Simulated scan of single mutants.
Amino acid sequence: MSTPGKNLEGAVKTANGVELNGVLLQPITEQCNGCDRIRTFEGQEFCSSYAIPSKKWTLGRCNFATHIKVEVVAKAKVNPLKASKRAAKGR
Rank of each mutant, 00 (worst) to 15 (best):
2 S>P: 06
2 S>F: 03
2 S>E: 04
3 T>Q: 13
3 T>E: 07
5 G>N: 07
5 G>K: 05
6 K>W: 02
6 K>R: 11
9 E>A: 14
9 E>C: 07
11 A>F: 09
13 K>C: 03
13 K>H: 07
13 K>N: 03
13 K>Y: 02
14 T>A: 06
14 T>K: 04
14 T>F: 10
14 T>V: 08
16 N>D: 12
16 N>F: 07
17 G>M: 09
19 E>Y: 05
20 L>G: 04
20 L>R: 12
20 L>E: 00
21 N>E: 09
23 V>C: 11
24 L>T: 11
25 L>T: 08
26 Q>T: 08
26 Q>W: 01
26 Q>E: 08
27 P>E: 09
27 P>W: 03
28 I>R: 00
29 T>K: 00
29 T>C: 08
30 E>W: 08
30 E>V: 12
31 Q>G: 05
31 Q>L: 04
32 C>K: 00
33 N>P: 03
33 N>Q: 06
34 G>L: 02
35 C>N: 08
35 C>E: 02
36 D>H: 06
36 D>L: 03
37 R>K: 10
38 I>Y: 00
39 R>P: 05
40 T>N: 15
40 T>G: 09
40 T>V: 09
41 F>A: 13
41 F>K: 15
42 E>D: 15
42 E>G: 15
42 E>C: 11
43 G>W: 07
44 Q>N: 13
45 E>N: 15
45 E>L: 10
47 C>V: 14
47 C>K: 01
47 C>I: 12
48 S>M: 12
50 Y>F: 03
50 Y>W: 05
50 Y>D: 01
51 A>V: 13
53 P>R: 00
53 P>F: 02
53 P>A: 04
54 S>K: 01
57 W>N: 00
57 W>H: 02
57 W>G: 01
57 W>F: 06
58 T>S: 15
59 L>I: 06
60 G>E: 15
60 G>T: 07
60 G>W: 09
60 G>S: 10
60 G>D: 14
61 R>E: 09
62 C>H: 01
62 C>A: 10
64 F>N: 11
64 F>H: 10
65 A>Q: 08
65 A>G: 10
65 A>L: 03
65 A>C: 15
66 T>A: 11
68 I>W: 13
68 I>G: 11
69 K>L: 08
69 K>N: 13
70 V>E: 14
70 V>P: 10
71 E>L: 14
71 E>G: 11
72 V>T: 10
72 V>E: 09
73 V>F: 06
73 V>E: 08
73 V>N: 03
73 V>Y: 04
74 A>Q: 15
75 K>A: 10
75 K>S: 10
77 K>E: 05
78 V>F: 02
78 V>E: 08
78 V>S: 04
78 V>P: 02
79 N>I: 01
79 N>T: 02
82 K>Q: 09
83 A>C: 09
83 A>S: 12
83 A>D: 07
83 A>K: 13
84 S>N: 09
84 S>I: 11
85 K>Q: 12
85 K>G: 03
86 R>T: 06
87 A>W: 12
87 A>G: 07
89 K>N: 12
89 K>L: 14
90 G>A: 14
91 R>C: 06
91 R>A: 05
